[in-house]
Design a protein around this nucleic acid. Structure first.
Length: 476
DNA sequence: TGGGGTTAT
DNA sequence: ATAACCC
């Protein structure tokens, strides 16, 4: 670098050699860093010194079943949905049971395999939200990915601990778990120190999950979501791994196919193959204009950055779900009466979930899959409509029968897709409630609400005044 | 080849 | 409403 005094710009490290990139920083003859308690961490907010943890539970459904029934612990266990073993524990995996294997193949490979039915996701969904809730106790920035993964942006916690450490004059921090590539940690590099503190917090996450919920899982610690997710899988059951920035390229190039990059799915991978792009390196080196012409600027720019391990997407707190859906697949459903029965089943469990949530859905959607000999995947279609206000109101209450008017609506949606005068053959039905809105506080004032919710004068908890004011207007 | 979810267009 | 992505 030139002799210019370049405060702190972007990060633009060209890293000639891995070992010495921090060395020239003070200048050729400048005094050494001198980590006396006086040097109060000059940069503090560098470019984007984020610390992200990706938490990934081990074989989640199987684990939940083992927590529910500990006798299954030492047996090879598979969780079955229809004719598929969707997950298995490690006992079963050792014996050759792979993810999404057919029950037939799994039993052949492993005759002692114990199977439990996992078509009802309720236990998994509940445990999943317990995990998210536990992580949210540490820090509000928790983003769910499926039922068994969470991203946590722990930058602020790390910052606080870093300040505590510096004020206590402590300069030693120990990494928890593995370091990707076994890369050496440089404690003079505050990025390294932050990530090491992150690894300690990740360990605390995993300890809490085990102590409070009985669950094990992996964690990856890195400076963005992409990298934390990719690195979390490097040591597989119940271990964690830290990625230091210098090993980023090694991690990306360790992926044997572009579809392993989260964000590059089946379709994009196929189109990239057409362009001759198969490896991460291919994608990195591919001319951007051509890529943009093929995939559109938005996707092209995003995935090309991903190929370098760059991902500035924020950890977006998931909060409460955006939708509730329930579905069932089957060999054949070909009469309106059957359709009606299936809808009713789906609705019963759905309405239960929705009422426990407390919010009111304003949209309902019906999705179907019609039989087709060729290409049985992908052929789903859906119709949705707004719920009439008088039905929306009924969602909070239990007594009223909203099932039949809902079935009427669903059947109308069904007839928009299927001519019921002609023969049809369904293999799946899905009902989804979305556009969830909080019940306006002005409308919470039913007699029932106050009989249940009115606090006693002595209990005096915080926000009852507001609720009483809102409610008394509605009641009259 | 389940039974869920999300966001972008 | 669909299409893509994620698990």
């Amino acid at each position: 670098r030139g002799g210019q005094d370049e405060e702190e710009e972007e990060e633009e490290e060209e890293e000639e050699e891995e070992e010495g990139w921090w060395w020239p920083q003070p200048g050729p003859e400048a005094a050494p860093p001198a980590p006396t308690g006086h040097s109060k961490s000059v940069p503090a907010r560098n470019a984007a010194g984020r610390v992200i943890v990706h938490v990934d539970l081990d074989c989640f459904y199987a684990q939940v079943e083992m927590v529910r029934n500990p006798e299954l612990r030492d047996k090879p266990l598979g969780v079955q949905q229809k004719s598929i073993v969707v997950t298995s524990n490690y006992e079963a995996r050792k014996l050759g049971v792979k993810k999404l294997m057919s029950v037939k193949d799994a039993k052949e490979k492993c005759p002692q395999l114990v199977l439990v039915n996992g078509e009802d996701l309720t236990p998994y969904r509940e445990m999943s939200y317990k995990v998210t809730g536990l992580l949210e106790e540490f820090c509000p920035l928790v983003e769910r990915l499926g039922f068994d993964e969470n991203f946590v942006d722990i930058s602020e916690i790390v910052e606080k601990r870093l300040n505590q450490l510096q004020q206590s004059g402590c300069s030693r921090v120990c990494v928890s778990g593995h370091v990707y590539n076994n890369q050496a940690i440089d404690l003079r590099d505050t990025t390294h120190v932050r990530l090491v503190i992150g690894s300690q917090i990740a360990e605390e996450f995993r300890e809490a999950m085990h102590a409070r919920l009985g669950l094990t899982g992996c964690a990856g610690v890195a400076c963005n979501k992409l990298l934390s997710k990719l690195v979390s899988g490097t040591f597989k059951p119940n271990q964690q791994t830290l990625l230091l920035p210098e090993s980023c390229q090694d991690l990306m190039r360790s992926l044997d196919h572009i579809q392993k990059v989260p964000g590059i799915g089946y379709k994009t991978a196929k189109r990239l193959e057409t362009l001759g792009v198969r490896s991460v390196c291919d994608l990195q080196a591919f001319p951007s204009p051509v890529l943009e012409k093929e995939l559109g600027a938005s996707v092209a720019q995003r995935i090309q950055k991903l190929s370098y391990g760059e991902d500035d997407s924020p950890v977006t707190p998931s909060g409460r779900p955006q939708s509730f859906s329930d579905e069932d697949s089957f060999k054949k459903c070909s009469s309106e009466a059957e359709v009606k029965e299936k809808m009713e089943e789906l609705l019963r469990s759905l309405l239960d979930r929705v009422s426990k949530d407390g919010r009111q859905p304003h949209t309902v959607r019906l999705t179907i899959r019609q039989f087709s000999a060729t290409d049985r995947w992908f052929n789903r279609e859906s119709r949705q409509c707004a719920l009439p206000p008088h039905l929306v109101q009924k969602f909070g209450k239990e007594s009223s029968n909203i099932i039949s008017p809902l079935i009427d609506i669903l059947l109308k949606l069904f007839r928009k897709m299927v001519n019921v005068n002609l023969p049809f053959h369904l293999t799946l039905l899905n009902v989804c409630f979305s556009n969830l809105k909080d019940v306006p506080s002005s409308k919470k004032g039913s007699i029932g609400f106050y009989l249940k919710q009115m606090p006693t004068p002595t209990s005096g908890s915080g926000k009852s005044v507001q609720e009483m004011e809102d409610g008394s207007q509605g009641e009259g």
